[in-house]
Write a protein that binds this DNA or RNA. Structure first.
Lengths: 224, 224
DNA sequence: GGCGTCCTTGACGACCTCGTGGCAACGCCC
DNA sequence: GGGCGTTGCCACGAGGTCGTCAAGGACGCC
């Protein structure tokens, strides 16, 4: 299901959006201010964000920059202001679309569909095969010796980030940011625990991993 | 250079766009009707298309469908009509953005930048190859004789700075500043140790280095 | 209310990296 | 040729990082 994060401090707008989005099968989170928005974005990983610019605690541009530091999730900006400079600035700091209030719900939903469609990866035939196990990114499934391996949500998330960067080094900060959110960049203990769990479930010899490799002091790397 | 295809049957609009886009370093093609647009898109492979809906020969939706059959190039639609149904339909057949006329040039250019940015490929790997070893900056990987070479974080950091300045002299101060920070500019002993380690790991004859070269009294240089 | 799953947290030992000092070799200048 | 500064090389100790295990706690399900 597509998850939408609505960021707006006006309850009636949030309510209208929630009703309309729910009715069309979207999963809706809502945040009344920038701080909550950044937090929810990190924890819930929405597929698209609808962001009102007139927030009580932060400038809209700051929210966008905070998000763009670690995610490329589509951001659709809502604003009451028609001023050209604001549109330009907002788009240039990383927003994907800019809709002025009052807006037509149909149009907003169409722009939402367009944003999600663009962000959708172009038909991955995403089954990565190693000597020891297989990872199906689309089906979110891991197989080993013919049987499925059960992963917890966090285990899967860590594995997914590594597999999507096959062969490349993923720094500890990057991994923590993508899985736990930007405020967890120092919790390197999590990685030790979860990499160990993944190795125990996937590697033939967990004490000498061949695919989930540690680069001491730098990060981790998935090798096929 | 970014190539833009402008599709519009009004010469003054084409002219205004051409001037503004050229001035900002875009390469501009123009088509006055849908047939020409499809033809030019196929032959010239623009990076983004600006498409007016009021074309003499085809419906705008038909042009978009014709393009979407084989390309995912971003399409920004221009239209004089504010009607919500038209926006919805246009976006749903595959347009990326919808701008109503009269439009502000600044805003259009900002939306163009946003569209191009989204479509940009996620940065390619640049692999530097020498006779003796290879350096993959994106993957943070060094290879030699087919096998990976393990570098410590500091070793990698030193090598990275040198490789990013291939052929150029990097002063000791600059190297120390970039790797250890501004307050270590006098610790030239560090460099001796780490250059020696890198040579031992990478050079065929570490006592006569061919790629990690000392410029006595000045600094170091990486030569392919 | 009990149970199981999952996430978080802390402790500990093994291992490795970094910084450091000493010494020899080399080159340059006087 | 002698003196001096710079560079290459080695070895060692402190501190940090990683893997591992286990316990506590939140949460959802029956």
């Amino acid at each position: 299901m597509t998850r939408v994060l609505v960021v707006d401090d006006e309850p009636q707008i949030v309510r209208a959006l929630r009703i309309n989005l729910r009715a069309r099968g979207y999963d809706v989170d809502a945040a009344p201010d920038g701080r909550t928005a950044l937090d929810l974005a990190a924890r819930r990983h929405p597929d698209v964000i609808i962001l009102d610019l007139g927030l009580p605690d932060m400038e809209g541009a700051e929210v966008i920059k905070g998000l763009r530091g670690w995610t490329s999730v589509p951001i659709i900006v809502l604003s009451a202001r028609h001023a050209s400079e604001e549109k330009v600035e907002t788009l240039d700091v990383g927003a994907d679309d800019y809709v002025t209030k009052p807006f037509g719900m149909d149009e907003l939903l169409a722009r939402l569909r367009a944003a999600v469609r663009r962000a959708a990866p172009p038909e991955e035939d995403a089954v990565i095969v190693t000597d020891d196990f297989t990872v199906d990114l689309a089906a979110k499934k891991v197989g080993r010796d013919g049987a499925d391996v059960r992963l917890t949500p966090t285990e899967w998330h860590v594995l997914e980030v590594l597999v999507r960067n096959t062969g490349r080094l993923v720094s500890q900060q990057q991994l923590l940011r993508e899985v736990w959110g930007p405020s967890y960049e120092n919790e390197t203990g999590y990685l030790r625990v979860y990499l160990a769990q993944l190795r125990r479930k996937l590697e033939k010899d967990p004490s000498r991993p061949r695919h989930l490799i540690t680069e001491p002091g730098m990060g981790y790397r998935f090798e096929r």
